[in-house]
Design a protein around this nucleic acid. Structure first.
Length: 1110
RNA sequence: GGACGAUUAGCUCAGUUGGCUAGAGCGCCACGUUGACAUCGUGGAGGUCACUGGUUCAAGUCCAGUAUCGUCCA
């Protein structure tokens, strides 16, 4: 490897080498270590639905940055990797693909076969996801990689559910859910999107009816015969002749109407409240109610129909007014028995048509208008969802009856008393507001992919038609069950609770073993010959009347909400609930132990829990973050992390969120291949500020001619595609070719909508914004290249104070500040500012000034060489400082750009294995394990301690910089080439003059300028251009070159500028109120500034008058 | 509908508790390539800080309202 560095940084060559090296040395591994403090980050587990996108790249970069930083700070830093089975999302994606490619539905192949296919999908994407993370340089402890359905996580899920169940926190209830009739599952709110569709807005009437006195005969009004268990069904009604008009977009729901609602203050209907109407198509009679929240006077007729079982607002209204909830749909969205003979079995949309016809025929149709309707769609199946009343399982979030804080409150308390802190802080509000509602958590999903709800239901009923007198009571069944459980040795693994409302006994199981035994039991119950006393006698040893009782035992079909398992991530991954053994590693072992004897406790859990920071995006603060905190408190008695950093979202160039369906997503690998991992990481870190989301204009680079085709919106909606592609892409599965506007050749283009054909040329995604990072890496590379080229003859050695020249002291002062600043900024998760601080230092200070200034010394041509023949020692000290600074810089950058830093560290190890400012030592074998250059707890012991920081020196240096810039400016204005020497005269105080003289050699070096004279006695030479600083005036004689008129113009402009500032400042000082009200310090500052400005103006005016004379 | 955020140079963004001449990167213009880097260097142009009011000696910054955009929750 001892070859010269190439002129350009070539990332791909470097990356694979160091990934292997790090892995071989186990630098990513974290083990319990009593000599170090732990630092734990749990990855926001990516879904195995698909490959990682830019959001993941951002998320991963920041976590890796913090992990690498903490590792260098001496923490035992664990970054726990893993993936989420993502229930609905993954099942849907597999089902969709299966249907598209083979025309099969899940019902065609069955539960086991589908689950098998999903596992295959999971295996393939998990592999891809983990590889993507590796390519990003993620320093996860890969041995500990977890998956939410693996054995370790499953145990945690079962234990948690079991504990919830035992504590009475699990219950079953009916809730209005978003029902996806296509997938036949409930869909979470966040899995629903709204889309405008063409619809109709019908207006109908219901006839008002009144009770018929008992005994009076009924005239043509029907009875509420179809009503369900309503007392109304036994009462007769007749029409009063009045009609109530209302509008609806879903006429079929009138089958399930429970009321008509008006506003309480609506005078038009005041007299009708409390009366009834009849639903013409079913004949059912329902009340007219008043509800201020549901009805709006000014909207339409002011009347609305209320269908509590099929509309979210109506549901709430139904609860407020104690209305009946009438479910009218089957799971496939056909009408159920409440439709009666006329409608039962019809699809909801067919029924809608039929009802409209019937209403019209019955004379209750008023009008219809076309209207755009916001319709909820399932994100997974893309089909409309129906609000639907169904049986679901819940976790109770509310407080206990005795006022003890419940799960939600405990998680709120943790944030309120700052055990968990949000960065930026404003996000804690999202968390607290959401938890504050204390809504019960619906944890059941009607899916096949996931953790099956570990509950069995035991039902009992009558065996024969003979007599039900002797049927067992609930307590008798429970007693029998308990006896069986005890005999089976399942006392600790099951929990039994009667669910009287559903005439069911619930049995929660903790283990698979218990499930097996219950399954066997169920089998026996099913097969038992109910007529054989002998058989039954074995089963049910007690009681002679069992022949009348039949038992059935079924396992719950639903699976748990994905968030149930991910809520446990922070402790489940560490092996909880096993508190006695370390969690298994990938190789099956339990990893190194700090205990000599056989471990008797789970050290990994003890050591790494609670974690330190969760780094995530804001859209899962509620669904995930809040639930991790509450399960952590519930299971572990402690919060899962003390900080939550919420980073920005990545948007496309049009400010839209990236998504697969919009086609604007981007595989980070495209960018990594194009710009290099470090460049991508550095750029991403620079984007990660506190307020703004990240807008990324993207383009596609033509593989033939490298022309970049920008992304464009498709003109109608949010779809994004290369601007040369005509037409819409939505719903297309054919691969679309993109013509290049420049070379006219076609290529595929990178899109999340389908996989590229690797055999064909493809236009990959590019974005100018990543050139920021690429250019920076190249700059750093070349700075290091320069240093290494100039280290010939380097010897390690302590740097004496007397060896340090102005630029050395300055760069050390600056580096000390920057290391301190970056440390502070990272501690606050201000990645954008940290990145900028490092870039500015590297580019604008280290490269632009320091490297330029030491070039003469490195060549043995410094001032010392000329004046005193000290060339060798000057060179040696320059090399030592250079190596020291570069060493520090590489350390500082390692968390941001690990690959280039490792490469440079290794190169440095070859040419300067021993280095360090004050005590040169042999450098460690990898920058990953080098120490962080700023020690927070012990600043004085830092590599670049604060004692190096020197305000006065930095001020002196600024003057040098300003002088050089001013001379360069004059060169540019007068078109004097940089190789033509010029002379410089500086008029200033003697002290300043002395300081200028000290760095005279640098004027020559940096600006090819000879400092002829400096001091108070200096006069403006004739025919010179001039400039002025705060404490000095500079003159550059330009014999023959100076254009008097132009120079006069330049100086007058300068004078005008100064006068403007002076006006502003003196205005302030003349303002009585300012002088009396503003703080003394501010007033003094203004005075001082004004004095300086006036002095400068004086100088400029002197020059102007001379020019005028000349 | 509620909460939060944003609106500053052509583009993407910084701008601390109000306080000296509002900054950066990219892009643009001019000049510059015999050894660190053209993924570069030097210099420069470019901003009524969305709008309207208010508070203040002083507002990009604080307050109120308006407009537009975004996110989350309903």
């Amino acid at each position: 490897m001892n070859t010269e560095l190439p002129k350009q940084y070539q990332p791909s060559e470097v990356q694979s080498r160091w990934l292997d090296y790090w892995k071989e040395n186990g630098y990513f591994d974290a083990n319990p270590n009593p000599n170090k403090k732990p630092h734990t980050i749990m990855i926001p587990l990516p879904n195995v639905t698909g490959a990682l996108h830019m959001g993941h790249a951002l998320n991963g970069t920041l976590q890796d940055l913090i992990t690498r930083w903490r590792r260098m700070q001496g923490y035992e830093a664990l970054w726990m990797p893993g993936t989420d089975h993502a229930g609905i999302a993954t099942q849907a994606v597999v089902e969709r693909r299966m249907f598209e490619e083979e025309g099969l539905t899940r019902h065609d192949i069955g539960r086991d076969a589908l689950v098998e296919r999903i596992w295959a999908w999971k295996d393939s994407y998990e592999k891809r996801i983990l590889e993507q993370l590796r390519q990003l340089g993620a320093s996860c402890d890969w041995r500990r990689t977890r998956f939410t359905l693996d054995e370790t996580c499953s145990k945690a899920v079962r234990r948690t559910f079991f504990r919830f169940f035992k504590d009475g926190l699990i219950f079953r209830g009916k809730r209005l859910v978003n029902w996806d009739p296509h997938l036949q599952t409930a869909v979470a709110n966040d899995e629903v999107f709204h889309e405008e569709v063409d619809g109709h807005f019908w207006t109908f009437t219901y006839p008002v009816v009144e009770k018929v006195d008992s005994g009076e005969s009924i005239v043509d009004s029907g009875t509420a015969t179809t009503s369900i268990n309503s007392q109304l069904s036994t009462i007769n009604y007749r029409e009063t002749g009045e009609k109530l008009a209302f509008s609806t977009t879903r006429p079929e729901t009138m089958i399930g109407d429970s009321a008509i609602c008006v506003h309480p203050t609506d005078e038009r209907y005041e007299h009708l409240v409390g009366k009834h109407v009849r639903i013409p198509v079913t004949g059912r009679v329902i009340p007219i109610i008043a509800d201020a929240l549901l009805a709006k006077k000014e909207l339409g007729t002011g009347c609305v129909k209320v269908t509590p079982a099929h509309d979210h607002n109506d549901y709430a209204c139904g609860l407020r007014n104690n209305l009946e909830q009438i479910n009218i749909l089957n799971p496939d969205a056909t009408i159920n028995e409440h439709g009666g003979e006329k409608y039962q079995g019809m699809d909801r949309y067919d029924c809608r048509t039929k009802i409209v016809e019937d209403m019209e025929a019955l004379g209750h149709f008023v009008e219809v208008e076309d209207r755009k309707i916001e319709l909820a769609h399932s994100d997974r199946s893309k089909s409309p969802v129906e609000p639907y009343l169904s049986d679901q399982w819940f976790v109770k979030m509310d407080d206990w009856a005795d006022g003890k804080p419940g799960l939600a409150q405990s998680a709120m308390d943790a944030v309120n008393d700052r055990r968990v802190r949000f960065f930026p802080q404003r996000y804690q509000r999202t968390y607290l507001d959401w938890l504050g509602e204390k809504r019960d958590w619906c944890i059941s999903r009607q899916l096949w992919w996931g953790h099956r709800i570990p509950v069995w239901q035991l039902k009992w009923g009558v065996n024969t038609s003979e007599s039900s007198e002797n049927i067992w009571s609930e307590s008798e069944v429970v007693a029998l069950l308990m006896e069986w459980i005890s005999e089976s040795g399942l006392d600790d693994e099951t929990e039994v609770r009667p669910d009287s409302a559903n005439e069911t006994i619930l049995i929660c199981t903790l283990t698979e073993d218990a499930d097996h035994k219950l399954a066997e039991f169920a089998q026996v119950l099913e097969e038992a010959d109910k007529s054989s006393d002998e058989e039954y006698g074995k089963l049910y040893p007690s009681g002679p009347h069992l022949m009348q009782t039949v038992l059935s035992l079924d396992q719950e079909e639903d699976v748990l909400d994905t968030w149930f398992s991910s809520a446990l991530w922070p402790h489940a991954t560490l092996g909880w609930p096993d508190t006695e053994n370390n969690p298994p590693l990938a190789d099956g072992s339990s990893g190194p132990s700090t205990l000599d004897s056989q471990p008797s406790r789970n050290e990994v859990l003890d050591y790494f829990y609670p974690g330190n920071v969760l780094i995530t995006s804001r859209d899962i603060i509620t669904l995930w973050v809040a639930r991790m905190v509450l399960t952590g408190l519930y299971n572990m008695g402690d919060v899962p992390f003390s900080h939550v950093h919420v980073h920005p979202k990545i948007l496309d160039g049009f400010g839209q969120t990236m998504s697969k369906s919009k086609g604007n997503g981007c595989d980070p690998q495209d960018l990594i291949d194009r710009y290099g991992t470090d460049a991508v990481r550095f750029s991403i870190a620079s984007f990660a500020g506190e307020t703004q989301d990240v807008k990324l204009p993207m383009g596609y680079e033509c593989p033939h001619c490298q022309h970049v085709v920008p992304q464009a919106l498709d003109g109608k909606g949010p779809m994004v595609k290369p601007e040369t592609v005509k037409g819409t892409l939505k719903g297309t599965s054919d691969k679309v070719l993109m013509p290049c506007p420049k070379c006219k050749k076609e290529s595929q283009f990178s899109t999340p909508q389908y996989d590229l054909d690797p055999a064909q040329p493809a236009a990959r995604m590019v974005s100018e914004r990543f050139e920021y990072g690429r250019n920076f890496c190249n700059k750093l590379w070349n700075a290091a290249r320069f240093a290494i080229l100039n280290l010939e003859g380097y010897t390690p050695g302590k740097i004496e104070e007397s060896d340090l020249r102005l630029e050395d002291r300055w760069i050390l002062s600056r580096l000390s500040r920057v290391t301190e600043e970056v440390t502070t900024l990272l501690g606050r998760y201000q990645f954008d500012k940290a990145t900028q601080a490092i870039r500015d230092f590297t580019w604008n200070e280290f490269c632009d000034w320091y490297l330029e200034m030491i070039k003469p010394r490195l060549k043995g041509e410094g001032q010392g060489a000329r004046d005193e023949g000290q060339g060798d020692s000057e060179k040696a000290s320059a090399q030592r400082v250079l190596v020291g600074v570069l060493d520090g810089l590489v350390r500082l950058l390692q968390p941001f750009t690990p690959f280039i830093c490792e490469e440079l560290w290794q190169r440095l190890n070859e040419v300067a294995p021993e280095r360090g400012l004050f005590e040169p030592v042999k450098a460690v074998e990898s920058v990953m394990i080098a120490s962080w250059p700023y020690d927070v707890d012990n600043a004085d012991q830092s590599l670049f301690p604060p004692s190096l920081q020197d305000d006065i020196l930095e001020h002196r240096f600024s003057r040098l910089q300003e002088t050089v810039v001013a001379v360069r400016n004059i060169r540019a204005v007068y078109g004097i080439g940089s190789s033509v020497p010029v002379k410089l005269f500086m008029k200033c105080e003697p002290g300043v003059a002395e300081e200028l003289q000290v760095c005279a050699d640098q004027f020559e070096n940096l600006a090819k300028t000879i400092l002829e004279a400096a001091g108070a006695e200096v006069d403006r030479p004739a025919a010179s251009a001039s400039f002025n600083l705060k404490d000095a005036d500079g003159f550059v004689p330009l014999e023959g070159l100076v254009d008097v008129a132009a120079e006069l113009e330049r100086q007058k402009k300068e004078a005008d500028k100064l006068r403007g500032f002076i006006r502003g400042h003196s205005g302030k000082l003349q303002n009585e109120k300012f002088v009396s009200n503003a703080p003394e310090k501010v007033v003094a500052e203004v005075r001082e500034t004004l004095a300086g400005l006036e002095k400068q103006l004086e100088s400029v005016e002197a020059v102007i008058s001379q020019l005028g004379d000349g």
